[in-house]
Design a protein around this nucleic acid. Sequence first.
DNA 1: ATTTGCTGTGTTATATTGTAACACAGCTAA
DNA 2: TTAGCTGTGTTACAATATAACACAGCAAAT
Lengths: 165, 165
Amino acid sequence: MLSNTNNELLAKGSERHDHERCISDALIRAQKLCQDQKQRLTRTREQVLRLIWQSHQPVGAYSIMDTLAESEGKRVAPPTVYRALDFLLDLGLIHRINSLNAYIGCQSPGHQHHSCFLICQQCQLALEFEPELLKNQIEALQQHSGFAISQQNIELLGTCPQCQQ
Amino acid sequence: MLSNTNNELLAKGSERHDHERCISDALIRAQKLCQDQKQRLTRTREQVLRLIWQSHQPVGAYSIMDTLAESEGKRVAPPTVYRALDFLLDLGLIHRINSLNAYIGCQSPGHQHHSCFLICQQCQLALEFEPELLKNQIEALQQHSGFAISQQNIELLGTCPQCQQ
DNA sequence: ATTTGCTGTGTTATATTGTAACACAGCTAA
DNA sequence: TTAGCTGTGTTACAATATAACACAGCAAAT
Ligand SMILES: [Zn+2]
Ligand SMILES: [Zn+2]
Ligand SMILES: [Zn+2]
Ligand SMILES: [Zn+2]
């Protein structure tokens, strides 16, 4: 029912996955995608993406700003961060979690896609799942409502397995 | 597939439904619900609810504030509106549309429920649908992910039938 | 009827998140 | 080299939301 990618993801909440690998993979994917799309993954953009990938919890823009300022040793203004975020959002490299005003890395960028997440209200772990799972029902909903749906934005809030214990 | 309630709702985007009735029904439902729950539907709270029900488009808090100030003939401060909104949200009389930072009346309050909307990106019509439609798939998702889902927050963006013409 | 406490409101100030506008740097392609 | 585009720095500001505190007004208990 869940894709392979998602089964792998189930480990992401736990401490026992190779998260360094997780980050570097994401950066490599980003570089490839930018090459393909003839877009420039500049230093700022890459740094922001790296910071977002530091955890599997969504991060706020101002938190990114502060961390960036610290690591650069100089003040960073909001537009710097928001421009990078807009770029990454446009390319589908990250998602915005509306209920948290926060941003998180995309697990499988490259195909512009919907934003479907399970979010733990205790630890903020955000687990992306494939919209495929709901495809038929959304299809039916389109038929019956007459709406032409172009973007799914699904945030399912609850408690992750770790936090249930 | 869609509930009866939802089939009725399909008319809501058009000009030809009795919207005065729509509003008064909502207010009556609110009064009943408050009685049952032994909560007070004060003047401010009722006015805010009425304003939200003026249309089937989500309304921003500051827009509510301005309209309220005008109709009262005196300044209204943010906390006044936000307190009313919090009250209405807690009782499930309204929903917050996170992707728009805006609020909309609930079609069937009384049972605390999920927030599932089709939203037109052109006219902002927001059509609530029953989570029932996705129940089985969400169930499966819970099983496979181990998450205990307590709140669904679904916003499907697209174009409504009216705006497609 | 009075007291007492709780709930709701008014008010001021402030926090948090996100943009507009403009000058300039720095790459890219004629 | 030059011209033009894309990205950045900087300042100011907009939009959304909350903290804190004093007080009003209803409601239950005496
Ligand atoms: Zn990881
Ligand atoms: Zn994604
Ligand atoms: Zn109506
Ligand atoms: Zn509802």
